[in-house]
Design a protein around this nucleic acid. Structure first.
Lengths: 233, 233
DNA sequence: AAATATTTGTACGTATGTATA
DNA sequence: TTATACATACGTACAAATATT
């Protein structure tokens, strides 16, 4: 029944000591040679166990000095921002997508600013996500066709842009800006809310290495949607 | 000048192929034995290189089948939610705190619901944060006096509740809810915004193990503040 | 349905390099 | 300067899982 590997067991045991507060930040752990005898395994194995803890930011290694419990991390909340269709599915509702506008064009001044590019071809999309036929979010998006030429051939009325991009384009960085805005006329009309009513705006910039991939703004009626964020270990 | 390790170099090369899109999701990498000859190193080293990519979620391994480029991961944004006074300081503005209300009482129905407790004594606080003398956020907070009896003795006009709690009470879990709301009369008046104008609402529940510590709602004028969230590796 | 071959998973022992208290 | 403790890599071995025959 030893389904667990030696290095995982060692990692867990050390992790517990740290999490329980037994080993506080700054505490020096026994040198690898010592752990190797206490656990009756090779140094490689001990080393790999500690590797895992270093990756998780729990341990800091200093040559010649030893391995130390790292100082606890700052306050960070992990905000899950999945694709809209996933959000709707998670609520047990039916997702329906309406493509309002689709334009391929050379980036104009606003496009360049939003996407953070000098120029090039972009794809402009506007669509309305519905949950059980009720307006759920308005999506406005720019995709860099230089970075993602394959997007030209995709039918975004069938698959939501966010979902398609998530599945086809790897990203290295994303940045979000979350705010409250008043619904302007075209938005209010499409979302079916009174003019000026509060909406949650989520803007997202995504890029791969240095290439900008996409910019998107999602506008949700304030009375129908809120973001939830868990803690981050 | 070979300052870089072999496994790091291999990892980087593979990572580039993935990031550039050369190897798309689902692409199968050469088996470790093959990589070991192409790079002229041991299998352990190749294995460790791929280990790093697995940790980053770029590669998925299946025994007997091989190692494959993983489908891009779900979106997770790391949202930094510091204390309000820190936020203001980060903008280079002067923070000023006004304590509006401070009440110690037995938890009423609403308190119990917000804090998630059965009963007990609570501290109710309402205060206004100002940045350069302009209203910045309205804070409404409940503190469980059973969990944090020391709060009775603190002068929250001098130190903001969030800052004091952060520094004095360890927490293990936090949960956030971020939405857009319309400013109601008392809020609008205190924030100096028109009635019904959009505001960003950040609610936070904090607890230590199973004990509820505090509930807080921060209301920011929508035109003056937005949350920013970075990426998460 | 069972045997086989392939590929990853874990661990060993050893060796040498490197930064530093 | 030197000994210490981590850093990297080698080659080997066997185990585990599973696609293919």
């Amino acid at each position: 029944m030893k389904r667990i590997s030696i290095h995982d067991r060692i990692r867990q045991e050390i992790e517990e000591r740290i999490m329980s507060g037994l080993w506080e930040a700054g505490h020096r752990l026994p040198p690898e040679h010592e752990l190797m005898t206490t656990y009756g395994c090779s140094r490689m194995t001990v080393h790999k166990a500690i590797d895992g803890l270093v990756d998780r930011g729990l341990i800091e290694r200093r040559k010649r000095a030893g391995s130390f419990v790292a100082a606890p991390t700052a306050h960070r909340a992990a905000l899950e921002i999945p694709d809209v269709s996933v959000e709707i599915a998670a609520r047990g509702q039916v997702h329906r997508l309406g493509l309002i506008e689709r334009v391929e064009r050379e980036a104009d001044a606003l496009d360049r600013e939003r996407l953070g590019v000098e120029g090039g071809a972009v794809l402009w999309l506007r669509c309305l996500h519905r949950a059980d036929d009720r307006p759920f979010a308005l999506e406005e998006r720019l995709v860099s066709l230089d970075a993602v030429p394959a997007a030209r051939a995709v039918d975004f009325a069938a698959e939501s842009p966010g979902r398609w991009l998530l599945g086809h384009v790897p990203w290295t960085d994303a940045r979000h800006r979350i705010g409250a805005v008043a619904a302007k006329a075209p938005v209010a009309e499409r979302l079916g809310v009174p003019l000026g009513s509060p909406c949650l705006s989520v803007e997202r910039w995504t890029w791969r290495s240095d290439a900008r991939i996409t910019w998107v703004q999602l506008t949700y009626p304030g009375d129908r949607y809120a973001l939830e964020a868990g803690f981050l270990a």
